[in-house]
Amino acid sequence: MSAVATVNAGPRRGWKSVSTWIGAVIVGAAMICAIAAPLLVPHDPFAQDLAKRLQVPFWMAGTDPAHLLGTDQLGRDYLSRLIWGCRISMLIGVTVTVVSGLIGITIGVLGGFFGGRIDDAVLFAITTRLSIPVVLVALAVVGLLGTSMTLLVLTLGLLLWDRFAVVARSTTMQVRNLDFVAAAWCAGCSRFRVLSREVLPNIASHLVVVATLEIALAILLEATLSFLGLGVPPPLPSWGLMIAEAKDYMFFSPWVIVIPGVALFTLVLGINLLGDGLRDLFGARTDT
């Protein structure tokens, strides 16, 4: 348990809750898909077969058993692209969160720990960051510098650190004044040691919860940018890009946008469910 835990009433919380388990199963399945994608795909996700365009998925009449979820407008196997897309979503979600976490936690902990002028500067940085329209600026950066995965991750990472900073700052402020930190000071520990050995471990659980929610947010944003044509570059199968490419066919074959959309929705929901479960488990606060 963490030092700033709040008591949770209620019968089913944390791992006792069904929704946490649903989230954990979804996230687990997505992680397996992401890591083992090259082994799991039934077909090459990039191989086009124009003779087999827009084959229908298994629940519709006239389906091809070789393509369980049908094929896209270029005849690429939809299930394979979906699995590969999961790899891309997870990769971007996690890497963006690592970048934004490093920035946000550093800023937040410094502000909360030192207070005074430094904290004023941190608060100002957070206020400024919140006033910047994320989607627009991310689009502009990618649009001006060209589409690439690295650029996308860096841009989103530089934009999404606000919640990390807010939570790291407020929890550090609470921990800073607790007795064991005072004891460490009295024992003659250096600032760095107090920060790294006393403060950070005690706010870590809160940050883990923020990280889960931020992964979900980054995945949604990546899909949005890819949908607008300025995210993951084709022919990589990002779920957002799959929806964008299939948009022209959606009125005649709605499943082409339903399948990647359901995948995206399920993954984000699963991560959020797991995050909420972890929050209840740790008694962490993530309100911003």
């Binding site: 929704s19 899909a223 607008l228 957002g240 929806i243 009125f251 946008i257 929705f265 984000v268 959020n272």
Partner: peptide, 21 residues
Amino acid sequence: QMVALLGQAMPSFWLGLLLMI
């Protein structure tokens, strides 16, 4: 609370397309 969670996970562009269809 479940509805709030579902709303949070819904990609807006996708919801828009579904409503259009």
